[in-house]
Every structure is written in structure tokens, then in C-alpha cells.
Amino acid sequence: MRQFALSLVLIFAAGWASAFEAEEVARFGPADSDRELRIISTADIAFFEPMITSFLATALSTSIEYTVVSSSELQKAIVDEGEAFDVAVSSAMDLQTKLANDGWAQRFTPAATSALPDWAVWNDMLFAFTQEPAAIVVSKSGLGDLPVPDSRNDLINLLRQHPDLFRGRVGTYDVRQSGLGYLFATQDTRASEIYWRLTEVMGALDAQLYCCSSDMIDAVKSGELLIAYNVLGSYAINREDRDEFAIILPSDFTTVMLRTALIPSNAPSSDLAALFLDHLMTRSHGQDAQLLTNPALVLSQNEAALNRIRIGPGLLVFLDQLKKRAFLSEWESAILQK
């Protein structure tokens, strides 16, 4: 796998010339390649690498520069700074939709269009290639004999019954920091009022707030947390140590995020980007799909409870500044309880 990665450079924000903050930059493929594809992405390198290596195996004399950023930095890089990237991949569906809606994406028709499900393409601009559920990750050992909660109601009851056990040991996204956390939270409120009850309960238990799913999983693993709510199930299942914790897809409803890719309107190599997207979509959908997420995470067993977030202008609603301000203040009052 790693033979393609000639250099894996970790560059931290301070060392980066541009104003947007890159968490990591990696290069794949031969150093003397004829063409280079620049991908800006919110996905961890390890998560996305199989897609890159499989693409490079089919494309001759091509290299890929892969820049990992947070979703808000991705927005900043493309909109504010006009950075020339060929593909933008993000888990923040709302921000991706806003990019496309506001004209920052090129239209493109994938070769496999007819084979793609309806929910996977929006306006020939946004292309969804994963389905990643928001899961409850529970520390098996930390929970001891207590029942593993199956739904939000179970979780609320569990938390209420054992406040001393869970105080300070439940975690969730800090939706003010994390675009994905905000997306999960807002979609939860659309699906059910129970989100607010759960948030209040978690707030009462002095919930810990995190920027990212991996941090939450690490915290569960380390025993810092017993339960993490709205963790990206795909990250949890892709870990080698996945057996140490229970990954629960709530049976009442499971919010499913679609990771999406788009070709920015200023992409320097849009043809190459189109090739890459073709590869991405063909490999991610249909019978022979080789998913980026571990196949142990089976979504289909609970199809009725799946709340697949629909790509579309509805996602713009919670990006509205008035709406966002109102939501955040409500959320803060629920979780911080000051």
C-alpha cells in the first residue's frame, strides 16, 4: 500500500504558507509524474488512502497531493482564498452543499450515472461515496454489567439511573467547533425532540465536548469516557481495536452522513478530477463496491431506522446565520447548563 506514498509529509499549521490551516499533507505516486491531482479533504489519510492507491494503480504517471483540513478550513480554502484544488472531499454535507449551491463546484456527469442511487448525486455537482452513520460508542469494559443501550431512550434511562457513574464520562461533539457535529445535531433535532432531552441529560452529567470522532473514540478507549454520542461509526469500525468498544446504531433512528466530493470551479486539472470521481463513484456504489468503511458496519440490517441525510438546499437552512445562532444558543443552554 505504502509503496505509492513516496513521501508522507506532516506539515502543521505553522509551517503552511497559506492562510487556511492544513492538518496534514501527503503525496502519493511517482515524484516525476506528468500530472498531479490536488485533493483537499476532511477525511483522515488512513481512511481515504485505499481510494487513492487504487486510483493510482489505474492512472499512469499521476501523483496525488492530499491535504487534510477541517471542514470549515476547506470552506475557507476554496471560497475565501480561491486555492486551486481539483477535488474537494468533505463529511460536512451542509458546507459541501453550500459550496455547490453557491457556484463553487463544476457540473460533471459520472460515467456510472445510471448505476448510482438517487441520493448519491445532487445537481451533477455533489457526489456521495460513503454512508457513515452517527453511532453511540460505548466502552464495553467500563459499562460492566449494565445493559448496552440500544436507542436514545435506553441511553437516557441508563444515564439517569446511574448519574454518578457517568458524570463527566459522557462525551459528544462540540457543535460550535465541528461542522460534522453540528450537522449530526441539527439532523437529530429534525428527526426527533428526543435529541434535546438527551442533550439536557448529558449536559446535567457534565458532558465532555470534542472536536473530532477519533478523539472521542480514543477517550472511550482510554477509559476517560464511558459513552460517546454521535461518533462517526465508520471511524470507529475502521480501527484495529474496534472490539474494545460497542458501536451502536440507535434503533430509534440512525443519522447517516454521506461523505461527498465535488470538483471546484477553479480546478486546474478538472479532466483528471473527473477521472478520479469516476473511479471514486464506481468503487463506492453497486454490486462490486469496495467500501472505504469496514464491511463489519452493516447498515442494511436496520434500513427502516436509517435517516440518510438528503443532499439539497434544506441543508442550507441550518447554515443560516440567524438559524445557527439560535440553534447554538439553545444547544449551549442545554449542554452547558450555565
Binding site: 438528503r310 439539497g312 438546499p313 437552512v317 438559524k323
Partner: peptide, 30 residues
């Protein structure tokens, strides 16, 4: 309190880009 359906309904039949502006007289709100 911008209703979710206000924008999602516009996209229900075909994929459409949607824009909106809320103003109080000439003062731009959102």
C-alpha cells in the same frame, strides 16, 4: 426560525440551487 422545508421543498422534484435573502426594509438580515 427558518423552516427546513422552506428550502428543501424547492429541491424536491429536481436538483435545484436555492438562494434566499431576508431583509428588514433595506437592512440585510440573513
Amino acid at each position: 426560525d427558518l423552516p427546513y422545508s422552506a428550502l428543501s421543498m424547492l429541491d424536491s422534484i429536481s436538483d435545484e440551487r436555492v438562494f434566499y435573502a431576508i431583509r428588514l426594509e433595506d437592512e440585510f438580515l440573513s
